[in-house]
Structure formats: structure tokens, C-alpha cells
Design a protein around this nucleic acid. Structure first.
Lengths: 220, 220
DNA sequence: AATGTTATGGCAGCGACTGACAAATGGCAA
DNA sequence: TTGCCATTTGTCAGTCGCTGCCATAACATT
């Protein structure tokens, strides 16, 4: 239940090699971006580091940024699959929270380090942040579509699905930022941070404004 | 009160010429993007259309996308200035709503057409959407900063400022999308659409989930 | 009118990205 | 195994976004 929902698909030798090349390109690119920065790393360097030509690199990824997107989307796909598997009867926000927690619980140490690296890249490279926000917006609209189909709510006349998706996104963003600024300890710390942020979400949504600081998100 | 907060600043002949060139580049670029698409328009074409060299274009705008950002930021800056001018005592969401309505009311026909064009560009060019989301996120974080300073709420331990900003952003996005899909009539229609979406926001935030479709956002 | 400051143009160059063609490789059947 | 087809890959030429450099032109100041 906590293992990643997407594993390496089996197939002919051809497809296996393609998958390996793709993973190698992602890994190598992230490592190079970490060492020398995104802008200072050329696509030729990435390609050369895994023994393929630059032209081949661009057959796997349409742009240099897409390597980063691919790494992040793997996690987001896992999250979305878990969200889809939730009981449609429970509150969407609870389903989203549970799916997010499960996804983060499923991350091994290497995947966790990748997440940290990605966040650092978003901080240092506005171009990548823009891509990330765009991808995140796509997932948000998919979430809205699922909520509307499950509840029968019309998203055109009722803002609730969009608001739930936006609140979820804002909460996750806040949680990850908080976790990044507090040492990025292991999986348990990350999950605890996420849980506490969602604990604070309910009171924040229903509470009044000018008194009571609301629930808190204490250190992980 | 409803005139644009940012006018053409006076200064030496030099600065006036710079401002004129900048505006001419923006106008010409938007027109070319509209006619031929963003990707099919080269920076040399933009530069040539206003009688400057490509090198000069890149002295005004660091990237081709930044021309689009500059056009949108002019409106966002106006909005943010109006938000800052609001009474800190009123509910942040009311201040944001009022500022947004005032900004849209201040748009003349030409500015309104620009907004329509920008939205179309975001739909047709993912690259520009990414830029827009990044800029929007910057404004959102500025909004959060203002709310926290006005209310004394700590955004690290209390999610409410971020949630308000996110809800505002989601509502505006929904309103603009709705307006875009319904003929993009004049300023009054746009303002009315925005108002109705914010009218629906309150019930959507406080209402229950599995019954009562909540308030609606009828046609503009 | 002389001088300093700033904007501009031209040019060479890097790197992201693409189309086209040829060569190599895996898949599959005879 | 052999031969054929489909897919992948490499090479190459080329476009375009974007930058550093330097000379020149335009404005500003005294």
C-alpha cells in the first residue's frame, strides 16, 4: 500500500533500454544540475554523461526543463493514482491528504533527496519554478475534474471543487517549504510536517479572523 | 478613484523616449503574437516593427516572454496598489475583491482587449502560462506578506493568509475563465462576472459538501 | 561648445532546439 | 540462421533566443 504505484514496466528489450536511458538521463541531469546549476549545465553534457548524442536527449525530452518536470511528475503521478483509488464517499480534502501522505511515506531515501533537490532548483531557477507551477496547475485541474465527477458538483457554477484543490495545493506548498527550512530530515519528519499542516487546515478554513491564532504547525 | 494608478511618468527627453520605445515594443509584440502566434514571431521581427535592433529589444526585456509579463504586470501592479490602499481593518478578502473590481473597472477598451489577448496566449502557449503562474505566485506571496503584517498573523504557523490569497487567486482565475468563455463583453460584463464569483465564494467556503449546490455564478 | 553619461547598433558567438538523412539495432517470420 | 521491417540513434546543417564586446550616436551638464 505504501510502495510506489508506478514500477518499471516489463517489455521487449527495446523498451527496457529506452526506459533505462530515460532514467539515466534524468538521474544524470539532476546530479549535474545539483553540482553546476541548471543554466550552467548544457544538454550536450547531460547526453554525453550517459553516452548518447544531444539529438537523442531531445528525443526523450522536448526541453531541458522537461527533465526536471519528468522527475517531479513521477511523484505527482503516484499521488494522483492514490487519490483516484480513494473512496469517493469521503471528503475530497481527506482523500487528497491521505493520498499525499501515502505518497510521501512511499519515498525511499533517494527519492526524498530528489525532492529536496527539486525544491532547491525551484528556488534557484525561476524558469523551473514556472514549469513546476504549470504542471501543478494541470494536476489541480485534474483533481477538480475528479471531484466534480464524484460529487456531481458543476465547477462552473460552484467554486468548491476549485477551492478545495487550491487549498490542498497551498497547504502542500506550505508544508514542503516548512520542511525544507527545517533540516529536511527523513521521511517520518516530512510526513509529520504534512500531517500537522493539514491538521491546521480545518481550523484555518472555518475559524474567525482577528483573534485566536488558530491551530499551529509545530516543528517536525 | 477608478483611473489607472500608474500613469506615464514625466522626466527628461531620454526617459520619455525609453518609455515610448518600451510601450511600442509591448504593443507591437502583442499584436504580432496575436497575428502569427508567440512561437512564430521572432524577436527580430518585434524589434524591426518599432525600428530598433534586436540587441536593443533585449536591453528592454530579458526574454521574449517578458514582453507578455510586462503587459500583464502593469494590470497586476495597479491591482496591488489598490489593495495596499485599502483600509487594513476590513477583511482581507473584501479588500482583495474591491481592489480587483476597481482595477477591472479602470480598464479602457484597449486594455480590456489586451487582457483577452493575454488569456488567449496563455491558452495557446504553455510557456507563457508557466510565466504567468510564476508571476501570479509572486503577487500572491506579496499579498500574504501584506495580510500578515496587517493582522499580525504568523504565516508559518497559521495558514489563513495563504489560504485567503489562494482562494482569491482561484476565484479570479475562475471568473476570468468564465468571462472568456462567454463572449468577453465589455468592462461591465467582466466586473459583474467577477462580483458574482466573489458572491459565490463565501457560501462555497462555509457551506457543507454533499448537498445544496451553493451559490451560483450566473451568466454575466 | 566641450565634456561626460547613457542608449544604441553591429558583430561574433554560445546553446537550445529541429528537420532530414543515413546507419545501427531489436523484433519477427521464413 | 537468415532476411526483412520497424524503430532508434547519430550526424549535420540550420534557425532562433540570448549575451558580451566595442564603437558610435544621442542626450545631459557645465
Amino acid at each position: 500500500m505504501t510502495r510506489p504505484a508506478v514500477a518499471e514496466p516489463q517489455g521487449g528489450l527495446r523498451e527496457r533500454k529506452k526506459a533505462m536511458t530515460r532514467e539515466a538521463l534524468i538521474d544524470s541531469a539532476l546530479r549535474l544540475f545539483d553540482q553546476h546549476g541548471f543554466a550552467a549545465t548544457t544538454t550536450e553534457q547531460i547526453a554525453a554523461s550517459v553516452g548518447v548524442s544531444q539529438r537523442t536527449f531531445f528525443r526523450y525530452f522536448a526541453t531541458k526543463e522537461e527533465v526536471v518536470s519528468a522527475a517531479h511528475n513521477a511523484v505527482d503521478d503516484d499521488f494522483f493514482a492514490r487519490f483516484l483509488a480513494k473512496d469517493p464517499a469521503i471528503h475530497p480534502l481527506e482523500a487528497l491528504r491521505a493520498a499525499a501522505v501515502e505518497t510521501w511515506q512511499s519515498l525511499d531515501e533517494r527519492a526524498l533527496r530528489s525532492q529536496v533537490l527539486l525544491s532547491k532548483l525551484y528556488d534557484s531557477t525561476p524558469q523551473l519554478l514556472a514549469c513546476r507551477l504549470r504542471n501543478g496547475a494541470q494536476y489541480e485541474s485534474r483533481i477538480v475534474a475528479v471531484i466534480t465527477s464524484r460529487t456531481g458538483i458543476d465547477p462552473v457554477t460552484d467554486l468548491r471543487p476549485r477551492l478545495v484543490a487550491a487549498a490542498f495545493g497551498a497547504t502542500m506548498h506550505a508544508a514542503v517549504c516548512y520542511w525544507m527550512n527545517c533540516g529536511t530530515d527523513g521521511v517520518h519528519g516530512a510526513v509529520r510536517t504534512i500531517e500537522r499542516h493539514f491538521d491546521a487546515l480545518g481550523p484555518a478554513l472555518t475559524g474567525p479572523w482577528h483573534d485566536r491564532p488558530g491551530a499551529t504547525a509545530p516543528p517536525s
